[in-house]
Computed example of a mutant assay.
Amino acid sequence: MTTDEVTPDGCPVEVYLRLPPNGEPDLIDRAVEPGSRILELGCGTGRLANELAARGHRVTGVDESAAMLRHLRGVTPVQARIEELRLAERFDVVLLAANLISTLDERGGPGSARPARGTSRPAVCWSGSGCRRPGSTRS
């Protein structure tokens, strides 16, 4: 499938459709409980969300682009800007790609990740060396 659709911030949807997962679903799946409720912020075309849903997780994907959300499979889509997102549902895991937090905060310093509203701690932390649930020995 080819598309010439572009997101509100100018990203070509076709580029994201062609990007395959690079092991991230495996890392995340090993770090979380089976059937976890996962919220992926900035899910795009579902590169991670679709794979996690196929593995039996209950995934909600958030993106501001309706063109991106149309490619989700087995994922509950929510069209919204992350900064304006308000959901009543609680999630076991919240995913946010590192490239989405490398922005400046209102004081001009680097933005920082913090627990999502309604949670007491980050659910998953990952880096190039692995993925784990805080307080867990699973990796």
Rank of each mutant, 00 (worst) to 15 (best):
A123E: 05
V62Y: 02
L95N: 01
E40H: 15
H57D: 07
H57G: 11
V32N: 12
W126N: 08
A113K: 00
H57F: 01
S120H: 03
E84W: 00
C125I: 14
T103H: 12
C131P: 06
D29L: 06
C11I: 09
A54H: 05
Y16W: 08
E89P: 00
E14G: 13
V78P: 02
G61Y: 14
A54D: 10
C11H: 09
L104D: 14
E51N: 12
T103R: 15
R73S: 12
V13W: 02
L100Y: 14
G44A: 11
G42T: 06
P77H: 09
R133P: 00
L41P: 02
P25M: 02
G35F: 10
L87A: 04
V32I: 13
L95M: 07
G10E: 00
L17N: 05
R18Y: 05
G108P: 00
I101G: 09
V124L: 09
S129F: 12
L19T: 15
S136M: 03
G118C: 03
N99P: 00
N99Q: 13
L41F: 11
N99T: 08
V75A: 12
P25C: 03
P21Q: 10
P12C: 02
R58W: 01
S120F: 07
T76H: 08
A66C: 05
C125F: 10
V59F: 04
D63I: 07
R55W: 03
R86D: 15
G61L: 15
S129K: 14
L104N: 13
C11F: 07
L104K: 12
G44E: 14
M1Y: 04
L17I: 09
P25G: 08
G135F: 06
